[in-house]
Structures are given as C-alpha cells and as structure tokens.
C-alpha cells in the first residue's frame, strides 16, 4: 500500500488556501522521497462547490490527491465541525504523517484531531525529517528556544504543526493536476455549542503585515511606554516598515499579541529587521534570526541582540530614533542629506 503524507489545506476567511499549505507541501515532497516514495495529498474542508475552483490553486504544490469534505456548514471555521471532518477522513485514509500550519486555526484544530486519534502532535516544528527507521523526526525549540528537541511519535498518524514562513514553497511548474476525492462525513450528530456572533476584520491600516513585510521595526522593554511605541511607529511609517514587538513589550501592554515576534508569537524573515530596545532573549531571536539583515539599537552594548546583529548602535533609542527621522533619504530615494 502506498504510504501517504496528508497536509491540511487551511482555507482563509477570504477563501484562499493559506500560504503555509504550499510550504508544507514542498517540505513533504522531500520527506516522501525518504519514505518509500509516499504520496503527498491535501485535506480540504470547505463549503459546497469550491473544490473544483481550488484545484487550480493547488497547481505547483505537487500533491497527488485532494481529499475533500464539502458541506455548507463548513463555510466558516468551527472547531467542532472541522475536528469531526478531519478525524473521520484521517481514520479512513490512514496517513503516516499529518501536517498542519501553526496558524490560529491550525493551533486550535490540530490538538483536537490528535487527541481524538490518540496520537502525538509536535507543535511549531522548525525542522522535519525522516529518520533511518522511517519515522517522522520533528525538531522544535523548547524552553524559550534555549533547547532544541527532536521528537518522535509511537502512533500513527505522526502529527506536527509548522509556522508559516519556516519552510519555502515549491517553485516548480505544475506536473499534473491533483485528483479530487470527495469524502462524506456526517455532521448531523454534532451539536454545535460555539457560535460566531460577530467578526471585525482588521482594517488594512490595522493589519499587521509582519508576515509579508520587507522591513520590520520592533520594540522591546527598552521602548518603556506608549510614547516610546508611538515614536517607534512613526519611524516605521517613515521607512515603510511593519511594527513588531518582543513578548516583554506585549506583556507591558505596549503592543498587541499579533505584533509579537518570537516563540509565543510570529516567525518573520524580512529583508531588514531593526530591533529597538530589545535585549535579544533567545525566545525573541528565534522568531527573527533568519532575517536577511539585522540592525540593533540598545543602550547596553553587551546585550545579546548584538550577537546576531549585522550592524549595531549602542545608545538611547529615545535619542537615536528622532535623529534617524531627520534623514530624508530613508524615506525616499532622494539625495542623501540630513534635513534641517
């Protein structure tokens, strides 16, 4: 029997397949080669009639089959319905490995699926491999990123979640379109106890573009107060950057959780990351140390952030940021001169 690696294809609220699916699909191809040429397939849970449209979106992901559970009750995400659908399909398909993105939805859904299937789940992996015994070797940071652990699972499917941007999506042309296989799951027996009353989409100006930003300006404990973050925001706006924060800044109430970079926040890989008043605890740096270039401003020249920075300035951010705001060239491709 052909072994299967199943990847959950999360449908976003505006009906796109989440980018993390393509990253996982690409990684899974690599795993499949080490797993007796296993098949890489997708699990799609969606309202009726969309699977055919999605077939196009799955191009280039290299998957063979799309297992689809379609029902109009699956229009918006619900832990209860989606768990039921995923569990039933996983029981039938019996994949060796089941992967999900560590998104809000993935982190809500994955542990319900794994508990229902009596199997193990490794969260937020930064490395996936197949070992010499054909097992999924899932590596993840733990203890605030100070320790890496490679975790194996005794039961099937071996489950793992991976954050967006940890792996790269495929860059190959479509080989052949995937087959759509419809699966019927009886949702009638589910008594739905959670009801979505309202959804307030963030305005474009409020959406934190950390995931896609080319430049991120992030603040930590050293930004001290709301005024500090206002200054940071002003600087970020000026150079066209998204604003990030360390956990300390979030705990101080200076920034919201969706701005948090690091272990309990996001993983980011911008072209340039400017860390302001961030000491560089490993639980923060683990979420940003793959940035192309890192610039750090901190008053303590011995702060660990400088160990991973390309350029650093030891000094007071409250003096340096206003100074930087004076350089017109930072905001435009204008001549390099300081404004009066």
């Amino acid at each position: 029997m052909t072994k299967e690696i199943l990847i959950y294809a999360e449908v976003t609220r505006d009906n796109y397949i989440h980018t993390v699916f393509f990253e996982l699909a690409n990684k899974a191809q690599e795993l499949a080669e080490k797993l007796d040429e296993a098949e890489v397939n997708a699990l799609l849970i969606s309202p009726k009639g969309l699977a055919a449209d999605y077939r196009e979106a799955f191009k280039n992901s290299g998957i063979s089959k799309i297992y689809v559970c379609e029902d109009d009750r699956l229009k918006t995400y619900s832990t209860e319905y989606f768990t039921k659908a995923a569990v039933e399909i996983a029981k039938e398909v019996q994949p060796e490995i089941l992967l999900l993105g560590a998104t809000n939805q993935g982190r809500d859904l994955a542990p319900r699926i794994s508990t229902a299937l009596h199997t193990g789940l490794t969260a937020d992996c930064t490395g996936l491999d197949i070992n010499e015994k054909g097992q999924l070797a899932a590596t993840r940071p733990t203890f605030g990123g100070q320790l890496m652990a490679t975790i194996l699972c005794k039961n099937l499917p071996q489950m793992a979640t991976v954050r967006p941007k940890v792996f790269k999506p495929a860059e190959k042309d479509n080989i052949k379109p995937a087959d759509i296989i419809y699966k019927t799951v009886n949702l009638d027996e589910i008594e739905k106890k959670v009801e979505l009353l309202e959804f307030h989409k963030k305005l474009t100006t409020e959406i934190n573009e950390l995931d896609s930003a080319e430049i991120i300006v992030a603040g930590g404990r050293g930004m001290k107060n709301a005024d500090g973050f206002k200054l940071l925001k002003e600087f970020a706006d000026k150079i066209g950057a998204a604003v990030g924060a360390s956990r300390a800044a979030v705990e101080m109430g200076l920034a919201s959780h969706d701005m948090q970079v690091g272990q309990t926040g996001k993983t980011v890989t911008p072209k340039l990351y400017i860390a302001c008043g961030i000491s560089g605890a490993i639980q923060h740096t683990i979420g940003m140390d793959k940035s192309e270039k890192i610039i750090a401003i901190n008053k303590d020249e011995k702060a660990p952030i400088f160990e991973i920075a390309d350029f650093g300035l030891a000094g007071d951010v409250f003096e340096i940021l206003p100074e930087l705001l004076k350089y017109k060239a930072l905001t435009e491709d204008a001549s390099w001169k300081k404004l009066p």
Partner: peptide
C-alpha cells in the same frame, strides 16, 4: 491575526 471575533459558547 486577521481580526477579532465575538463568540458565544
């Protein structure tokens, strides 16, 4: 990440 939800459980 994309907004806030008001939910009844």
């Amino acid at each position: 990440d994309d907004g806030t939800e008001i939910v009844k459980v």
